[in-house]
Design a protein around this nucleic acid. Structure first.
Lengths: 358, 358
DNA sequence: CTGTTAGCGCGTTCAA
DNA sequence: TTGAACGCGCTAACAG
């Protein structure tokens, strides 16, 4: 570990000064030759480049350059769940896609960080070499860490985060979106509506919604969607799922549906399309027809190929969300002050809702 | 941009020396107090930490620390296609999942880099502050860049890469796996077998396989799977798909199947399960029954919920592959010399193959 | 247990 | 246009 890095072949790596010396110029000149950030005569530049090739110099060390310039070219993306888990959520993927796309234009790399496993040693959120950070649907759990970043002067953009944390927030109309769906169910005649929510904390736990849990929830998105549903069905109860997969929805759905018929809701508001699909499968498992015996709505507007019918849901554009966050980051890095914005959602009628059986 | 970073509030940020001075100790002592990499009395440590709080010091600057230690705590993951696109491939996701999981244990972050968009300025593969790099199913397209990394002393691990590039390679038995499937089809009596391959280059192009294209392909995996198929069906022709999604498979399948019956293959070897699913849908689109009118096999062994039947395929564990790569990286970083290894694949009989109609 | 001495490799003043 | 000096912020040696 000691001295240098391990070099299987070759001696200590050449530095910019070495190159400069070999080219017969000063280090600063060589630096300019590489970065193009200043005037150099073509002849000297060529000489420097030639010297570099001879010495096997492959360009300025990124670490040293970063220290000097104060920038690493890396944008961090903080995701609420385990990285692997998040990879299974199409909304996260699409958001990252939009973000990566937009950032790619400015040439920044994307460093994935998880809100969980904070016990990482080598690379904590506070000590990551990032120029900016995007929080993807993170709740309030990481707020303390944000403070550290702010003090370090690192711009932060949140996606569906806490408004008023003093950072640009790219939001989605989670509350209104869910309210629209709830109204749709109410207009169809449903009175007995249950919820299947996204996890309320950073933990994966399946279980009945409790008011305490809601009150102490760190997951902003879930809380807002609950609020939207309760705007129409006050006090609506339900299950908080252990994730946002079809399997999670199926498990939650079973809990809600595998009960005496009198206790069974006539409609379920699932907080994601994947959860909704799971609920529908759970209904099928129990011999219930959708929408005849049970209406189900989702959230997101992703394509769920697994389903034989189109889901009634509200659609958001996760891609746009990510791209907007990417633009906000770019602006921030250029010294601008991007504004928060809120993306609307659009109602999408599908074949999973109808009047209650009664 | 000149002076410091932009500070909306507060003066120039405190440095470790400032903290040390305020605590009345030397910088090195303060450093140890933060990193724990040495002996400090509890009292001095407390004093240092207190001084840090007073000054609003939030811990050592990651960039400076990296420059000094030569490590950033970041592992790069190079993926062959656009980041967003790759996010849609379950095998990539699972591999990243296994990798992230394993790396998480050692506390390293994961930096996503794409083999495409090499024109990024701020952060090229050559200039990324990474301690190690994992290539996920990248072909031979990035070999030159690898050389640069090697010269920089950065360890590289490939997944399904070129053996003998002098780096640890975590492989999967792509050729044998496909051969097993081909033999299965041959044993069923098929003689007229076509291929739907993964993209052969870093570009997304749908079209007939040409020998030239195969010869100049950069995508190792696709080439090996073609070889496996041709071990049994020499010269088998087919289509190279524009990606590895169901839609890509459907498009390729249509090209192969929407022809006079006499020209139609009796079986198709798709190079991924998703492609296979797409082919099956294409068959259905044309009124062909699987496996009665057409047999289809895939590769990967992922669950394809979209399909009404189980796919005949070979299964690999992408998760294990990623994890093995993660372990290799960890070993390499600890100065070890991990060995290459090759994961086997296991045949999975499904309901998508049967004897030819004839 | 603590302090001192040196850089890590580079980019940026300035003056020439 | 180029060169010389300096320091970004930190940590690895060693000496005390």
């Amino acid at each position: 570990m000691g001295r240098q890095r391990e070099h299987d072949a070759g001696e200590a790596r050449a530095t910019l000064s070495d190159v400069a010396a070999r080219a017969g110029v000063s280090p600063s000149t060589a630096s300019i030759a590489f970065s193009g950030q200043g005037p150099v005569s073509d002849s000297t530049k060529a000489r420097v480049l030639a010297a570099a090739v001879e010495l096997g110099y492959t360009g300025p060390d990124p670490l040293a350059r970063s220290l000097r310039t104060g920038r690493s070219g890396i944008v961090g993306a903080l995701i609420p769940r385990r990285i692997g888990t998040s990879f299974r959520d199409p909304v996260v993927i699409q958001t990252l896609d939009g973000l990566a796309e937009e950032l790619g234009g400015s040439g920044s790399g994307l460093l994935l960080l998880s809100e969980r496993e904070r016990e990482t040693d080598r690379l904590s959120l506070e000590a990551a070499p990032i120029d900016a950070l995007v929080l993807l649907g993170c709740g309030t759990a990481s707020l303390p860490a944000l403070d550290v970043l702010r003090r370090r002067g690192i711009p932060v953009v949140t996606i569906e985060g806490d408004e008023g944390a003093g950072v640009a927030n790219i939001d989605v109309d989670n509350r209104r979106g869910t309210r629209v769906l709830a109204e749709h169910l109410r207009d169809l005649g449903h009175r007995d509506v249950a919820l299947v929510t996204l996890p309320l904390t950073t933990e994966d736990r399946l279980g009945p919604l409790s008011e305490d849990e809601i009150a102490s929830a760190t997951a902003t998105i879930a809380v807002r969607r609950i609020a939207g549903a309760r705007d129409v069905f006050p006090g609506a109860a339900g299950i908080s799922a252990s994730g946002s997969t079809i399997a999670d929805g199926r498990a939650a759905g079973r809990l809600l549906l595998d009960v005496p018929e009198s206790d069974r809701p006539t409609a379920i508001i699932a907080q994601s399309d994947l959860l909704a699909a799971g609920v529908i499968f759970a209904a099928h498992d129990l011999g219930l027809a959708v929408p005849d015996d049970l209406s189900v709505v989702g959230f997101d507007g992703i394509r769920v190929d697994e389903l034989p019918m189109r889901l009634t849901t509200v659609a958001q554009s996760a891609q746009d969300k990510g791209a907007a966050a990417g633009r906000a980051v770019t602006e921030l890095l250029d010294g601008g002050h991007p504004e928060s914005r809120c993306f609307p959602v659009t109602f999408q009628a599908g074949a999973t809702t109808g009047p209650p059986a009664s």
